[in-house]
Amino acid sequence: MTDTVSFGYEDIPATEKTARVGHVFSNVARNYDRMNDAMSGGMHRLWKDQFVARVKPREGEYILDMAGGTGDIAFRMAKSGAAITVADINAEMLAVGIDRAATRGIDGLVWTEANAEKLVFPDRSFDAYTIAFGIRNVTDIPAALREAHRVLKFGGRFFCLEFSTTVWPGFGDVYDAYSHRLVPKLGQMIAGDADSYRYLIESIRRFPDMPKFEGMIRDAGFARTKVEPILGGLVAIHSGWKI
């Protein structure tokens, strides 16, 4: 990892990013789902459904859902009967997920405060590792990918849902204009916080494109990597296998 990393459009010392990202998510935790609906027109729900359909969780499997604090992915996977551990570095996000699980009557999930770069789980603990809209906020992404590989069993699968760069002509320009001009205003209106949502949009623009991120997944040791673009790559499902 380099001495400096991106925080939105800023380049900051790597030692500062985890705390600054933590502050952002502590600020947005209680309004996270409302803002996701407002920013995507509700489409994030369809993307997450498609993501879980690709994971194909099964009864008896052990699955780690990293950066899954609010429970959106875990709740979808819980229907399968898999044993799911929800991990997130942010205690406020986990608290939202725990409250939502109680409201929905979803039992049996394990909730753990954990850093994706330094997981406490033993080697070869899980059949699948999922992370949705979280990897771009990690300070040392290659370290997080190596940790994902380490905690997976042989034959285990890695799935990541993340914003990327659309290759549809003209669509990227329209989305950039919308996201940079309107999303911070929505954040101010709904959550009283424009700055946190400005960072979240800027972090998307600084994230590696689909081929580069797929290469990072391969570099972490995964094989049979694949990218499934959504809306031309505005969002993408990345996957790989530990073999």
Rank of each mutant, 00 (worst) to 15 (best):
S6Q: 06
S6I: 02
E10N: 08
I12R: 05
P13I: 12
P13Y: 11
V21M: 08
N27P: 01
N31W: 02
Y32R: 10
H44P: 10
Q50N: 09
V52Y: 02
V55F: 01
K56F: 07
R58K: 14
I63R: 00
I63A: 10
D65H: 09
M66C: 13
A67M: 14
G69M: 10
T70N: 13
G71W: 06
I73H: 05
I73L: 08
R76P: 04
S80H: 13
A82Q: 07
I84M: 04
T85C: 11
A87T: 11
D88S: 04
D88H: 07
N90I: 09
N90P: 06
E92R: 12
E92L: 05
G97P: 06
G97E: 07
D99I: 02
G108F: 10
W111A: 01
T112K: 13
L119E: 09
T130Q: 04
F133Y: 15
F133T: 00
G134C: 08
R136P: 03
V138N: 03
P142C: 10
P142Q: 12
P142I: 13
P142E: 08
L145H: 03
L145F: 09
R146H: 08
A148I: 00
A148R: 00
R150F: 07
L152S: 04
K153C: 12
K153G: 01
G155E: 02
G155K: 04
F159M: 08
C160L: 12
T165F: 01
G172F: 13
D173V: 05
D173N: 10
V174F: 13
Y175W: 13
Y178F: 15
A194N: 07
D195C: 02
D195W: 12
Y199S: 06
L200F: 12
I201C: 05
R205G: 11
M210F: 05
G221R: 11
A223P: 01
T225K: 02
K226H: 15
L234C: 00
I237E: 00
S239D: 03
W241N: 01
I243G: 10
